[in-house]
Amino acid sequence: MSVQTRPGTAEARPPAPPGSPAAPGAIRAARRESRSRRWRRDRILLAFMVPGLLYFAIFHYGALFGSVLAFLDYVPFLGLTGSRWIGLENFQRLFGDGDFWHAALNTVEISLLQLVFYFPAPLALALLLHSLTRTRIKRFVQSAVYLPHFISWVIVVALFQQMLGASGVLNGFLADNGLHTVHILGNPDAFKPMLVAQVIWKDTGWGTIIFLAALAQVDEQMYEAAAIDGAGPWRRFWHVTLPALRPVIVLLLVLRLGEILSVGFEQILLQRDAVGARAAEIIDTFVYFRGIQGGDFGFAAAAGLFKGLVGVVLVYAANKISHRLGESGVYR
């Protein structure tokens, strides 16, 4: 029995030939309808994104317009339009300033120490947590190692001072037992390793979240198949776990290289006076003291702009290298 359809309905219309003018229009209409349907479906999630988007738009992208200060002899009460344009003079002063290059060297040294010692720490902790079989113990350990991330740097520095300061617990124990006391936090030679130790204690647990998510995507049958084939724990890690984690490791490494001139401003500012500017000055504190406290806003803006340009170049270069290694990187 044939089905009758009314003229003008979708069933009655013959399909448009692929090469006809109506076909692209129908495809565009279908795409618009699908897009509007997705917007309606995800409107609650999109609404939650609005505060984050506003934050980045105002405080990150909007702040980029302030980079023009690097080319001005900026006077606050004259404003951007009233201040004198001096071109690259601030950059000439910057590149001829020995204190800036010393701050840059300190920044790179701290970043490399963090890259070598802190970057692998979340991966190692994630592997240890992933190997735990009891769910309750795993959740307890995860909660315990996540908590330091939510403690402010003021509290973290105070805790380290109470433990390792001149009158801290360690020196109290040494003095009570007739041993020689040590002032670790006031020692300039120990300052950079101490910074890395503080970062490892505070943020290693939080950094495991991404690696644990990647490990959760690995099929357990692959481990079982590798074990049946005679692969030991090390070979299973090398041939199953590491290939699953490699895209995440490369992505995080590219992002970390882009921030190689950005280390903990608040963490270092709180401890700078204890060891002196020679050991603790970084680019961010250099900009703060020369720009905010010294009032040399154009000079400080030039230092900040130089730091941002170096970060862009490093991200671009690292992303190209990741493409050469077969990974997607940050962008195509």
Rank of each mutant, 00 (worst) to 15 (best):
A274T: 12
T241V: 05
T241D: 09
F286I: 06
L245D: 13
L270V: 02
L270D: 02
W238Q: 14
V310L: 12
R246S: 14
A303R: 09
I260V: 15
E259L: 12
V275C: 05
G298I: 02
A231P: 07
T285N: 09
A231I: 04
R278H: 10
G308S: 15
M222H: 13
G276V: 05
W234G: 07
V240H: 05
V263A: 01
V313Q: 06
A214Y: 06
A244L: 05
D273G: 13
F297P: 00
L305H: 08
V313T: 12
F237V: 02
G291C: 12
G298C: 04
E224S: 13
L242S: 01
W234F: 15
V275P: 02
R278G: 15
V263I: 14
D296V: 03
P233M: 06
A302C: 04
V313H: 03
P233H: 01
D296Y: 07
E259H: 13
V263W: 00
L261G: 06
L215T: 08
A318T: 12
S262K: 13
D229R: 07
A227F: 10
Q293C: 00
W206Q: 02
V313M: 12
T285S: 15
F306P: 01
Q221V: 13
Q217G: 14
T285V: 13
G308T: 11
A226I: 09
A231G: 12
M222Y: 10
L269D: 03
A231C: 14
I210F: 11
Q271W: 08
I228Y: 03
V313E: 05
L253F: 14
Q221R: 13
L245F: 12
S262F: 14
K307W: 01
G205H: 08
L309D: 03
G298N: 06
F286G: 05
T285A: 05
R236S: 12
L245C: 11
V287N: 11
G308I: 10
E266D: 15
V287M: 15
A317C: 14
I321C: 01
L261N: 11
R272L: 15
K320R: 15
L253W: 07
L269M: 13
D229F: 03
M222V: 11
R272G: 00
E266L: 02
I282E: 03
E220M: 09
G207Q: 03
L253I: 00
V263Y: 01
I282K: 04
G264C: 03
P233W: 02
I260Y: 03
V312H: 00
L245S: 11
Q293S: 11
R256Y: 05
E224A: 14
A216C: 05
G264A: 01
Q267K: 15
W206R: 02
Q217H: 11
A213P: 09
Y223D: 07
T208R: 03
R235W: 10
Q221C: 04
L314D: 06
L215V: 09
G311Q: 07
